[in-house]
Nucleic acid binder design. Sequence first.
RNA 1: CGGGAUGUAGCGCAGUUUGGCAGCGCGCCACGUUCGGGACGUGGAGGUCCGGGGUUCAAAUCCCCGCAUCCCGACCA
Length: 477
Amino acid sequence: AAGGSPRRLWAPMAAKNVLTPQAEDFPRWYQDVVAKADLAENGPARGTMTMKPWGYALWERIQAEVDARIKATGHDNVMFPLFIPYSFLQKEAEHVEGFSPELALVTHAGGEDLAEPLVVRPTSETVIGDAMSRWIQGHRDLPLLLNQWSNVVRWELRPRIFLRTSEFWWQEGHTAHATREEAQEETLTIHDRVYLESIRDCMAIDVVSGLKTKRETFAGADLTYTHEGLMRDGKALQMATSHNLGQNFAKGFDITYTDANNTVQHVWTTSWGMSTRTVGALIMAHGDDRGLRLPPVVAPRQVVVMAVKDEVTDICADLDQRLMRAGVRSKLDDRTETSFGRRAVEWELKGVPIRLELGPRDLADGVVTLARRDTGTKETVSLDGVADRVIDLLVEVQDSLLAQSTQRRQADTTDVAEVDKIEGPGFFRIPWNDVGETGEDQLAERGYTVRCLVTSEEGLPESRDQDDLIAYVARAY
RNA sequence: CGGGAUGUAGCGCAGUUUGGCAGCGCGCCACGUUCGGGACGUGGAGGUCCGGGGUUCAAAUCCCCGCAUCCCGACCA
């Protein structure tokens, strides 16, 4: 390296150590995991994102789990237009006011200026509300349960890969009901079943579930429920929201039905969404110094079978097949022309929960070496019993990751009596009566927000006016 | 929009102060040796130095204008 500066000479060494997380530069660590796990890269336009195969496979797994749960609650999938006439947004006053600053508008198309600008959808309440007004006539048309998987655009000022991109992919559910009670029940069912199960049971992330304050409520909603996860650096992240929209959109779009008494009534609607942000949450909640750690339920590959030497690839292929027949998402790595260390590191960075390493020495002993990604430990298991052991261990790893998430959330939650005592990372529990909207504004000046309100039993409140509410306060992404 | 930086090979960067052959690491290609935890050697390919204008014998480098990106803040329904 003639003429090379000292810094240049140790660049390869430094490159191996960039994953070390430090509180003050956690986002940097996060970006390194995204890059080294080969999940995604920044897109050509500001704040956009190109998802790479491993990142997409992970998102696809999350989608599959969420979609199955949505279908189980009786919803049908639909597809609505990407472009929405600007006038649609203006039909609900709070909605347009809330979204205006971050809208992407198409003003020119087909070689001429458009008579009316088109909004690239930031969410689809308006265009779906327009359809609902035609699709719903009588009470026999209710409830109407729709879900859409789509990309939406919100021109946020500070994009961050996966966590807040200008364009993101999500699932948005939209429903219409005959009564307020039914709409509220739907909102809570989605929140407690579809979303909580997806986040807690599939992604192994423990959350605080509650009601948003007025300040944080979705533009156009009466009530917004949220799941707030706590990331490794003590900052909270909103992982999914469900909205009871009351009759706000029903009145704006004239969505009415004739009830059993031949009276025309406005419907009650809900909407709810969960996005690619959850991939970011997964990284931030479970990642460690060696990269991503994936919970087995959402891992695109749960096990990778590594052939250490060429002569064992056949037996490794058999093992891979055996695992797949046993219902395990297994992958054979027979790239023996690439060094073992490089391959092992690649699967670690990508977060595959279990690696099975099989070489001639193992084969001679009738065993296989099993490496756990979450703990970094290795064990030797007999070749005959490996499938059973793998299945048990996948469950154990899943449980262990959730337990770690729960433990972190509990350890990082502090009870305080005054707003002034809130300082540092983690959640702070404080009676909502002692905060109020004034206290909320004061907290905002110091970078804190009320993430959500819960009842004294940690349950979901039915209204923001209950007396016993506890506020969860934290810094947030 | 306010404050601060940056723009040079696919990626990460040096070179700009003091104008003088376009460089380094990683990655990529070929061959060989390796390869039970991020291998090494030799050779090679790869460039609109963000764009436009100016100064000069000569500009990545100096001057002017523009554009883009990143960081801090505001904003994040």
